[in-house]
Structure formats: C-alpha cells, structure tokens
C-alpha cells in the first residue's frame, strides 16, 4: 500500500536572495517610474522660469554618467576577483567602485551648489524645481545608500571578513548597484537629453 508515486518532482527553486532582491528592485522600478512620469508630465508646464535649458549643463552630467557606468564595470571585476579568491584585487576594484560612486555624488553636489547658490533655484522656485530635485535627489539618495553599503563591504573585506563563500551576497548588492546605474541612464535621458 503506497500513497506516494514512485518519483516525486523536486521543484527547482532559486535561492532566497535572488527572488528577494529581484522583488526589491521591482518595487523600486515602480517608485522611480512614478517620479519619471511626473517629471515628463510637468515638462514645460512651469508658469515662471527658469527652464531646464537655462540651468542644466549636459557636460557635468555626462561626466557623472561616465563615472557611474564605469562603476558598474568595476563592481563586476571586483566580484570576479572575489570568486577567484584574489582578495587584493577584490578590495582594489571595490575601492574604485566606491570612489566612482563618491565621484558621482560630488558631481551632483557641485551641480546643486551652482543651482541653489548662484541661480537661487530650489524646490520652491517652480514646477521644474520641484520635479527636478525630487527625481534627481531620490536617485542620489539611492547612490548614497549604495556607496555606504559598498564601503561597509570594503571595510569588512579589509578586516578579512569577506571570503569567496560570500560571493553570492556581494552579488545581490551588485544587482542593486546595477539597478541604480540603470535608473540613472533613464534619469539622464529624461532630464538632460529629452527634457533640455
């Protein structure tokens, strides 16, 4: 008497982290999508100036874009080094990634100092100000979070606490980082290319 068939399928299932991180990214995509939709809907709707053409320079933003895109490559290199158990190379590439992320933030800070200090352009100035600072600000906030997370990993690696066996967890952080980069491409296109 058997109540079980001869073979029971073992469903192929992904690790927790895969699905968990993908869920986080899904929900984040829709958060940024809302901000971007509002930015586009309000493009050119401000009743008073200044306009994006008058204020935004594509030069600075392009340099920032290059830095952030490069950091997506360096984090892949760092992960590769970790998997090859090359601790030194891992730490170096990770540090470069952190530096590129920090560079992006400094670039944003320079841009904002110019906008707020010289042009007296704030969240309150007009509709463009509200949407611009919210969209770019929330992205920068995500970069800041990423830089903090990567710095923490670097510190742990420096103390010798990160090993090859942790590569999967580091990969999830890298997914987040790639996501932040991808959002920037969208933001860059919307704010600095289409919107200018």
């Amino acid at each position: 008497m058997t109540s079980q068939p001869n073979s029971i399928a073992v469903p192929k299932m992904l690790p927790h982290g895969h699905v968990g991180m993908m869920s986080v990214i899904t929900t984040e995509i829709f958060f940024f999508a809302t901000l971007i939709v509002v930015y586009l809907a309000y493009l050119g709707k401000s009743i008073s100036g200044p306009t994006p053409e008058e204020l935004l320079s594509i030069g600075l933003a392009s340099i920032n874009t290059v830095a952030l895109l490069a950091s997506s490559v360096t984090i892949i290199l760092a992960l590769k080094a970790l998997r090859a158990s090359n601790q030194k190379k891992f730490l170096t590439w990770l540090l470069v990634t952190v530096a590129l992320g920090a560079w992006f933030l400094v670039g944003t800070a320079i841009e904002w100092t110019g906008l707020v200090g010289d042009a007296h352009f704030t969240l309150q100035t007009n509709l463009f100000g509200s949407t611009f600072y919210t969209l770019v600000g929330f992205h920068a906030f995500h970069v800041t979070f990423g830089v903090c997370a990567l710095s923490f990993i670097w510190f742990c690696g420096f103390m010798g606490w990160v090993q090859k066996k942790h590569h999967q967890n580091i990969e999830y952080v890298s997914w987040y980082w790639h996501f932040v980069d991808t959002v920037w491409i969208a933001v860059f296109l919307v704010v600095y290319v289409i919107g200018r």
Binding site: S46, I47, Q124, N126, L127, G129, T134
Partner: peptide, 9 residues
C-alpha cells in the same frame, strides 16, 4: 514644492 499646485502650472 508645487507638485499639485495649479497656480504653478
């Protein structure tokens, strides 16, 4: 900010 402020457009 002016997200829902009709007077700002």
């Amino acid at each position: 900010a002016h997200f829902f402020d009709a007077q700002a457009g």
